[in-house]
Amino acid sequence: MSATKEEKDALRKAAFVARKAAFAAAGPGQADRLSEVLADHRGVPLSGYMRIRTEIDPTPAMAEAAAHGPVGVPVIEGPGRPLKFRLWTPDAETEEGTFGAHVPAAGDWVVPQVLIVPLLAFDRRGYRMGYGGGFYDRTLAGLRAGGPVLAIGFAFAAQEVAAVPIDATDERLDLIVTEAGVIEPR
């Protein structure tokens, strides 16, 4: 399903509203299901993300995973480039990075095999709508060219839409984890 820029902009706007409402209503334990899913991948290099705006917060699950193996967070190096992932621990000193996300101030780079991916909207086919920069699509394509990579979308259930408009460069998610359950794309 391809869409015009105007249609994508309208969907992004609606997705921001839905996510903001879900964020405001959310209680504790949002990352519990994510922790359960990640338990099957202990010790495997993982990337998470540092929440911005009203994104669902994966850091409790990331902290648990960091006790078993390396966890990185994305660093944007510039427009049109794939993400790199800097080693993160719960006590890492961070600084503000691009778009206001905090990133470790220093540390080694991690090449993840499991990625927790933020999003604005998702559908049951496994497609996601992000902020429009294509960073995760480029990154996933590059990582998948080198071997198996598990991409886990993490979102509020309210962020589900009937169909995300896609382009040829869009990468599918392998799983979507919400506070309400786990979705295996069809």
Rank of each mutant, 00 (worst) to 15 (best):
V164W: 02
V71C: 03
A145F: 00
F154Q: 00
Q159I: 01
F23V: 07
A26M: 12
G132Q: 07
D91N: 13
G80Y: 08
R33C: 10
A141V: 09
Y127W: 12
T98R: 14
G29A: 08
V17Q: 13
R138D: 11
E184Y: 15
F135E: 05
R144F: 06
A31L: 09
A155D: 05
T89W: 04
I76P: 00
P70T: 12
P185Q: 08
H41L: 10
L119C: 10
G43W: 06
G80F: 08
E6W: 11
G100Q: 11
P90W: 02
E171C: 09
L119Y: 06
G181P: 06
G80W: 10
E95P: 00
P112N: 06
M62Y: 06
A14R: 14
A63V: 02
T94H: 01
L140R: 08
A21Q: 15
I152P: 05
L83T: 01
R172G: 10
T59R: 15
I52R: 08
M1P: 11
T89V: 09
R53E: 12
I52P: 08
P82L: 04
A24R: 14
V17A: 15
A157W: 02
V37L: 14
L150V: 14
F154S: 05
E36K: 15
P79G: 13
D9M: 11
D123V: 00
Y127I: 09
A14K: 14
G146D: 07
F154L: 06
I76G: 04
D170K: 05
V110G: 00
H68I: 02
Y136T: 08
P90T: 04
E96L: 00
G146I: 09
P74G: 07
R138M: 13
D170G: 06
M50F: 12
P118W: 04
V111I: 14
F156S: 01
A65V: 00
E6M: 09
P74F: 01
L38T: 09
P185H: 07
G130C: 06
A18T: 09
P118N: 04
T4P: 04
P112F: 04
V75S: 02
A25H: 12
F156L: 02
K8W: 08
L120C: 02
L34S: 04
K20Q: 13
Y136H: 09
D170E: 08
P74M: 00
